[in-house]
């Protein structure tokens, strides 16, 4: 349904452009900078350099140094400064160069970003977005490949969003910037320059907290987000050959989870495979399992399977493909819940 509405919205718009995920991000940022004078982009190398991945390419040239600001190498400092800006009427969009570099800012996020509204009973609120590329699979150096969404979904007071394609990237980024509360916006760097999709050049937004069914199926629910969406899709396509049909859902928002799409799908299929590249213990997959326990327990025909990264630090890239879930591991899990 959501897909259909989005497609209709898409068709009603005059122009679209074929974009990669990162172009969707850039286009979303540019659209919002154009839209609201109070929005500014901050981060390391986001100005002249256009970001190390070029997510902010051309933005400083177009909007000037006042709106697109190169900051010192200071994650806690500029996330903290963004708190002060957001308190004071601006809408900062902060780029953390890699999610694995966010640790110095964690104190600011855990003690201030997430709490300003509740500490002041709504007198202050922080309309700010923290963007960060995340994940393994692009032969990055150490620490550059972390996938630590669960450290943030566990924190009360921040929404966590993770698109898997250019269309969602732009629409979810617009919605995140327009949200009156803080949003962590995770960008799968492995998909940055992958598949191109048609993206409207106009402004549009996708509601936060809503997943999307990307393959309709009857036998097994497969839940994924970000870089794992193409893996889940591929596994589902392979399983078709065995006459197993998968209901593949891209969750898109990790907090708050779309409990309705999860419940509806699981109530239909009774079998579930959750795929994420983060470590298994305490991962978002555990929380999804809990949602299923609450909303669809009696519909289950087999135990829930999780295909995840392992409980080890993300290895250097020589072993990253061994760490990451593969379509084959997902297929095996699908087969397992069928055979139970």
């Amino acid at each position: 349904m959501a897909k259909m509405l989005e497609k209709q919205a898409n068709e009603s718009m005059e122009t679209t452009k074929s974009m990669t995920l990162i172009q969707g991000v850039t286009d979303g940022l540019g659209t919002m900078l154009d839209d609201d004078e109070n929005i500014l982009v901050l981060g390391e190398d986001v100005g002249v350099n256009g970001g190390v991945f070029r997510a902010t390419d051309g933005l400083q040239e177009k909007f000037g140094e006042r709106r697109v600001v190169d900051t010192p190498l200071s994650e806690a400092g500029f996330v903290g400064a963004a708190v002060g800006m957001a308190l004071n009427g601006l809408k900062p969009v902060v780029e953390i160069q890699f999610l694995g570099f966010i640790y110095p800012a964690y104190e600011q996020i855990a003690t201030h970003v997430t709490r300003a509204r509740s500490r002041t009973m709504g007198h202050y609120h922080l309309p700010m977005v923290i963007r960060a590329p995340y994940g393994a699979g692009v032969r990055s150096p150490e620490i550059h490949s972390d996938s630590i969404e669960a450290l943030f979904t566990h924190l009360p007071g921040i929404k966590v969003v993770c698109p898997s394609n250019a269309y969602d990237a732009k629409g979810l980024l617009v919605a995140s910037i327009e949200d009156p509360d803080p949003v962590l916006f995770l960008e799968p760097m492995r998909l940055y320059r992958g598949e191109r999709v048609e993206v409207p050049t106009e402004k549009y937004s996708i509601e936060l907290g809503k997943g999307e069914r990307i393959i309709e199926g009857e036998d097994v629910t497969v839940l994924a987000w970000g870089a794992m969406v193409p893996i889940a899709k591929k596994a589902a396509e392979q399983m078709k050959e065995k006459n197993i049909s998968c209901d593949v859902i891209d969750l898109r928002t990790l907090y708050p989870l779309d409990k309705d799409i999860i419940a509806e799908s699981v109530q239909k299929t009774g079998r579930v495979v959750i795929v994420h590249e983060a470590q298994s213990t305490g991962g978002v997959g555990s929380e999804i399992t809990s949602v299923i326990n609450d909303k669809a327990f009696l519909y289950l025909k087999s135990p829930i399977e999780r295909v995840t990264g392992f409980d080890v630090p993300v290895p250097l890239f020589a072993l990253e493909n061994d760490y990451l879930p593969t379509p084959q591991r997902v297929q095996d899990a699908i087969q397992k819940v069928i055979d139970f």
Binding site: L40, R66, A76, G77, F78, V79, G80, A81, A82, V83, G84, M85, A86, L87, N88, G89, L90, P92, E107, Q108, T111, H112
Partner: peptide, 17 residues
């Protein structure tokens, strides 16, 4: 010390405005 960056940011917003 977490409030020092906030003061900086609030001040930068005043300049911005």
């Amino acid at each position: 010390a977490t409030q020092l960056p906030h003061a900086t940011g609030a001040a930068m917003a005043e300049t911005y405005k």
